[in-house]
Amino acid sequence: MYKLLLAALTSLLLAGCSDQSWRTTDVADIMPSLDFSLVDDNGDNVQADEYLGKPTLVYFGYTFCPDVCPITLARLGDAIRQLDDETRDEIQVLFISVDPARDTPEVLKRYTNAFGPEFTGLTGDKADIDAITNRYRIAYEYGEENENGDYLVTHSSAVFAFDREGNAQFLVRDSHPITDVQADIKRLTEKS
């Protein structure tokens, strides 16, 4: 009996030393690596490999979004600001617009600057946006224009996290507690 109890305790302790899964949603085995060709909020053509070397969080949305985008980005910005300086300096956030007709580089720059220095806006033509949204299984759809030419865009609200090599690691949903998001971001920065 004593040996059985000791073996069980040893197994639990060893399990605690192993690589634990993410607190948010683990997507490492189901999502492709970071890959795109877009335009940044400075108007420069950029490739995904230019963002390698730092853990990267990616969110798809649009600047005219009345609720989901600003709430998600503000929540993400708050989570990052609450981390220690070293962790915060390691993180970069890419906001990829699904509304390239209205989200010019200038508009994106003003918008992302409101959330913090870690945020960079990206856009491109519709074909470029479709290529990356299809790659990450992001659904979006344009609503009907009103009399002023304004319209809503329905879109997914998940945040994807990639390691320094551009490999997908986890996905953050609105329902994940902020403490879990912070723990996973910190762990992502600590991975070599």
Rank of each mutant, 00 (worst) to 15 (best):
F95A: 14
S175V: 13
V172K: 03
E145S: 09
N113H: 13
R23T: 04
V46K: 00
Q20P: 05
A48C: 13
Y151R: 02
L76R: 06
F36T: 10
T123Y: 12
A139L: 12
D85S: 06
D174A: 15
L73V: 04
Q20A: 11
I96Q: 06
T72K: 08
Y142K: 08
D125W: 14
D35P: 09
D84L: 00
Q20H: 13
L83T: 01
V27K: 01
S18Q: 11
R137D: 12
G53Y: 14
G121I: 06
G149R: 07
I96C: 08
E90C: 03
N45H: 12
A15L: 09
V159E: 02
L76M: 13
V181C: 01
V181M: 00
Y2F: 11
I178G: 05
C65T: 04
E145A: 09
D150W: 06
A168D: 02
N134K: 13
N42H: 15
V107P: 07
S156T: 15
E145R: 09
D180G: 04
R88Y: 04
S156K: 11
G43F: 02
T154D: 10
N134M: 10
Y136S: 05
L76D: 01
L122N: 09
A158T: 14
R135G: 06
E50Y: 14
I185W: 01
E165C: 11
L171A: 06
L4K: 10
T104Y: 11
N167T: 05
G77N: 01
R102L: 03
E145W: 00
N148C: 07
S37A: 14
P177R: 09
F170V: 00
R137E: 13
I178Q: 10
V98Q: 08
A8L: 10
R164Q: 11
E141V: 08
K109G: 05
N45V: 13
R81G: 00
D128I: 09
L94R: 02
R75E: 09
T189S: 07
G121T: 08
M1E: 08
L57N: 02
T112K: 07
T25K: 07
L57S: 01
L152D: 04
D89S: 11
D103S: 12
L188T: 01
R187V: 08
V181F: 00
D89I: 07
E86H: 04
D49K: 15
P100Q: 12
N134C: 08
N42F: 13
L12Q: 09
V172Q: 01
S21M: 09
I129N: 07
A48G: 15
E141K: 11
A114G: 10
V153T: 11
K109L: 08
F170A: 00
L94C: 04
I91F: 03
Q82N: 11
R75C: 05
L38C: 12
L5E: 05
S156V: 12
A7W: 05
D180Q: 06
A101H: 14
E190V: 05
L14Q: 06
F60I: 11
N146S: 03
A114N: 10
T189F: 00
S156H: 07
E147M: 09
I138W: 02
D49W: 07
A114Q: 09
A48W: 08
R23N: 14
E190A: 13
D78V: 04
K186D: 06
